[in-house]
Write a protein that binds this DNA or RNA. Structure first.
Lengths: 208, 208
DNA sequence: TCATCCAGTTAACAACTGTTCTCCGTAATT
DNA sequence: AATTACGGAGAACAGTTGTTAACTGGATGA
């Protein structure tokens, strides 16, 4: 393994990343289906035609953004769910972890929330696929827990999807509160914590 | 009250509705932020400038679509939640009610799911407001149930938001399966039913 | 009946879009 | 040292966009 740099490839990756960053910034105030190719290149400072050296279309760029955005989400999902058992303290910690992730990568979270049901099919499918893999991973993690004794694989996957959806909904709430009043953040924390707690109670009594 | 027709106002309302319908149809394959004013008028068969007689901008039209779409959702939410107590049969019936609503108004459901986190602020706010009112209404409905004894108003609102979100998530799943394989619909029904059941179990043991 | 109103039309505007083709300079390869 | 590969620039294209202005004809109200 290991491929020595190559000045050329390094520069190409650099402009490619610049295009991705510029697009992500522009997408804070619009949807991908209205993002123009020229708009992106203008923001970066390269010629419009340079875009084609990296992406076939803005939809193609969107798919690349999905990988980048969910790569960062990946860590959050893992550590959130791993600690998301019945203990109230751990739930609270998981919610705060989501809040901190939104603080760190607001544009990524916004992009996923927006384009999950957005107007570009290929991007929707990419997000759905990634979230499906997340849910599967969460399922495997839940299966290790002694509380999962007697659960069918199907039921575990049902629960993991519920967790993933709840996680995204919470992240979206934190996102809306980013440039809002101070107390809003705490209100959302309390709301999300109780919702997670209720789900955990349902989980504990699932086999009654 | 009662305002006799008025040929003029009737015609105006007719073209206005035609604009809304055309826009909704066009929005099945794109987001509101990329919907062009000329695109809509072309689909209806009127001059571009006629658009201004009805809406200030496409964002303005979007807000009008929110009212129309959630007017139809209103009935669904009410009947869904009213019957969404602990009984498994009733939960199952509620899920099927969602499925049937998606069959009846797929474009409306798609619009709400897409623009809830979409690129147009005024539309996002309109949807958030309407969903907030729904959640409040659900809360009032839940409060009537004997099972709500001992619950704080805050906790009831927490639960109602969970219900509303779950409802929309389910509707979105049914939507994706509309032009898909036959078995998918049934699979989603089983998934959503079990998720609702788990939430109901959590609800029943909330005060433990 | 006549003057007013007003939804919709026509024409034109500058600005913008995605895409093609040709070219340039330089890193990579031989 | 000579040749190739390739990321990016430049110019031009046909087509689109939102918005303005002045106008038309039929319903409305006096």
């Amino acid at each position: 393994m290991s491929h020595t740099a190559g000045i050329r490839q390094v520069q190409k990756q650099k402009t490619r990343q610049a295009l991705l960053d510029a697009a992500l910034a522009l997408l804070e105030e619009q949807s991908l289906s209205s993002l123009g190719l020229r708009e992106v290149t203008r923001a970066v400072g390269v010629a419009p035609t340079a875009f084609y050296r990296h992406f076939r279309s803005t939809a193609d760029l969107g798919v690349a953004l999905v990988d980048e955005a969910l790569g960062s989400l990946h860590r959050m999902v893992r550590s959130t769910v791993t600690t998301a058992d019945s203990s109230d303290e751990r739930i609270h910690r998981a919610v705060e972890l989501i809040a901190r992730h939104v603080d760190a990568y607001p544009a990524h979270v916004r992009f996923i929330a927006r384009e999950r049901h957005g107007g570009v099919q290929s991007v929707r499918e990419a997000i759905r696929g990634q979230l499906g893999r997340f849910a599967e991973e969460v399922r495997a993690e839940l299966a290790k827990d002694p509380e999962a004794r007697g659960w069918s694989e199907d039921d575990l996957l049902m629960l993991s999807h519920l967790y993933v959806d709840q996680m995204l909904a919470t992240a979206s709430l934190f996102l809306e509160a980013l440039d809002g009043p101070e107390g809003e953040r705490e209100r959302i924390t309390r709301l999300a914590t109780r919702q997670m707690r209720l789900i955990s109670k349902g989980r504990r009594h699932w086999l009654d």
